[in-house]
Amino acid sequence: MFRGALIIAGLAVILHIGVILISLERVKAKPPLAMPDTTGRVVSQEASSLLKHYGCGGCHYIPGIAGANGKVGPGLEQFANRAYIAGHLPNTPENLVHWLMNPQRLEPGTAMPTMNLTSTEAKLIAGFLYGYDNDAR
């Protein structure tokens, strides 16, 4: 009797911890590796603080960035699988970097403001967004 109950309790512990981990995963997915191997983690950290600084999350849903739950623009999960940027630009790294640096020039009147990113910053962010393709999910 007791042993049975004990097993149930043990399962409950595992279940509880599972619940927590899942709820965490849901919000903070794996920190993606924007660049392979050596510098990977540094890059993603830098990129994520750029994303937070510029406020991308205010309009876009970006997995892995705390508070990035915006619904104004499209969600940015699995960005590498996206065919177009802004509805008509082919989704190439060059286009993405240009878009991030000056969306108003590529498509005047779009809601996304020009935020004066440097090209290094834009590349870091682009790398971060494409990094999701490596994600096992």
């Binding site: 927590i20 965490l24 919000v27 903070k28 508070g67």
Partner: peptide, 8 residues
């Protein structure tokens, strides 16, 4: 509260 700025 487990996470900052959580949206649960």
């Amino acid at each position: 509260l487990a996470k900052p700025e959580n949206n649960l």
